[in-house]
Amino acid sequence: MTRRTIRKLVNLLALGMSAVATAIGLIFLGAILWTLVKDGVAGMSAAVFTQSTPPPGSTSGGGLLNAIYGSAIMTVLGVLIGAPIGVLAGTYLAEYGRNSPLSSVIRFINDVLLSAPSIIIGLFVYELIVVPMGNFSAISGAVALAIIAMPVIVRTTEDMLNLVPQGMKDASTAMGAYPWRTITSIAYPAARSGMVTGLLLAVARISGETAPLLFTALNNQFWSTSLKAPMANLPVVIFQFALSPYDNWQQLAWAGALLITFAILVLSIMARVAVSRLGAGAGRK
């Protein structure tokens, strides 16, 4: 065998193994999506969007309206709390305190937080808010989601700001711009698409979280908009209903799972469109 043949064989082997690995991944993804769509669509009905979750014992009817509302409100609140803190912390790490020892500590802790089990964060918020308040509440759920979203946002903000060419920032500094001006007028616009992507990753992550909500927002069988009361939400409803013995409950769980997946898909597409529009619109005076 010549070197050439050996090289070709090795290449073929590597290519083959990569293809098989990709295929295995795709097969499972396809299977999950297929089951989700098949059972989810079967569980879909107008009632899903118009009625609240069915009471225990009822074997027909019921919807997810309260859970959809609850998930949306807590995700939005979580992002509203987590995003400003995350963006500002990421800005500190990338711009103000790039080389300070404090930054290394924050960066390390952020990485730990990034991979912390979400149930731990649920327990933390339980001790922090639920116990003093005396009951489960939507606001504690939002705080738990915010804490989960934060490290993702910190990390992507820092990474994206670091990708902005130093020469661009120097040019602004040399014009006599104070650091805050350089950051808000030059660095943020330049890093915008990456930062928005990071934000969406965070939304995607928290919109499917179940564990932290079990200890915080819990669930609510009824329609409730109070932030001080327990609130229904899709992940916990899916968890409870999927384990229930009732067919209509299980069907609702499938419908809920499809809804979350679909919402994240729509959100991602919207973000991509928005980011590309923003990029093109940046040239307007």
Partner: peptide, 8 residues
């Protein structure tokens, strides 16, 4: 290196 801002 020319370093225009990402603006118009």
């Amino acid at each position: 290196k020319p370093n225009p801002f990402p603006k118009s």
